[in-house]
Design a protein around this nucleic acid. Structure first.
Lengths: 150, 150
DNA sequence: TTAATTGCAAACTATTTGCAATAGC
DNA sequence: GCTATTGCAAATAGTTTGCAATTAA
């Protein structure tokens, strides 16, 4: 499923296929989580859903994100500090993250796929998922740091 | 610094160069954290250090691991559930992890380095670190699963 | 001598869980 | 109608912090 075909109908469908109830809260949370390319945190999604669904709870957001993981529609990315983030890009890709501002850029590169094949070959593991993170400093933060240290 | 040259003297040296005090607890924790290839958790390191240093505290282990991160001698790997793990292999490599038993195999592959260069080029980020995780099922667990489902 | 570090306990934060009320199927 | 799900509050787990006593430099 790609971003273009992501309608409420397709969300309801994906939920029902695995016998999950398509509640209105769930549909709203799924819509936001799956449409975002910003690798949002649970709290960020919560804040977004509240705009149209003021009574929703953070616990429901967490529970729905767990459902989306089971449906293999999102991946949870844990970091050594702060909250986890959720990524709806399930294709092998690179997350290039800024250590200063937290901005994450997705880079699609065939090298990622090639690396997975090689790892499978060398280890004889059956591969199901992957996470390629690259950490550093984005252009904006680099410029800002140059200014503050002069 | 490689595993072969990792002596107490070199640990003390690395600490002092950055003006950290070389306490006996720190040396013991560093020795264990840097020698391990098992991506240990803080608790695992704590249990190991206690064998020779029964009065050490978990807080000191965490503080020392933070020092090792500052020295760029270990990397902290967070997962969406459970404790973080610490990896003393600082070269670009793949962590091939079994989702069933948790076993992690390091795979050194030049493709990893190539991917970092490409990401830097495309995003203009200055890259400092990376983490390449591949998840799946190891041969042993696959065999075990075939047996239990038959 | 003095400033950093230790070990304890308490604090903190992100996430999960139990449960009565509610809503989908 | 039955069962899953919601939203609240409380619990949990991992990690961090404050502080008096101790130790390295």
């Amino acid at each position: 499923m790609t971003l273009q075909t992501l309608t409420d109908a397709s969300i309801i469908d994906a939920l029902r296929r695995k016998r999950f109830k398509a509640t209105s809260q769930r549909i709203a949370i799924c819509r936001i989580a799956l449409a975002s390319r910003e690798h949002p945190t649970a709290k960020r999604i919560f804040a977004e859903v509240k705009k149209t669904y003021p009574t929703v709870s953070l616990a429901t957001v967490y529970k729905t994100l767990h459902v989306l993981k089971q449906l293999r529609l999102v991946q949870e990315l844990a970091f050594s500090k702060g909250e986890n983030r959720f990524d709806s890009n399930m294709e092998p890709h690179l997350n290039v993250a800024c250590l200063q501002c937290g901005k994450v850029i997705d880079v699609n590169d065939h090298g990622a796929r090639r690396l997975i094949l090689k790892a499978a070959e060398k280890t004889r593991y059956t591969i199901t998922d992957q996470r390629f993170d690259i950490y550093g400093f984005c252009e904006k933060c680099k410029a800002r740091m140059r200014l503050t240290t002069q």
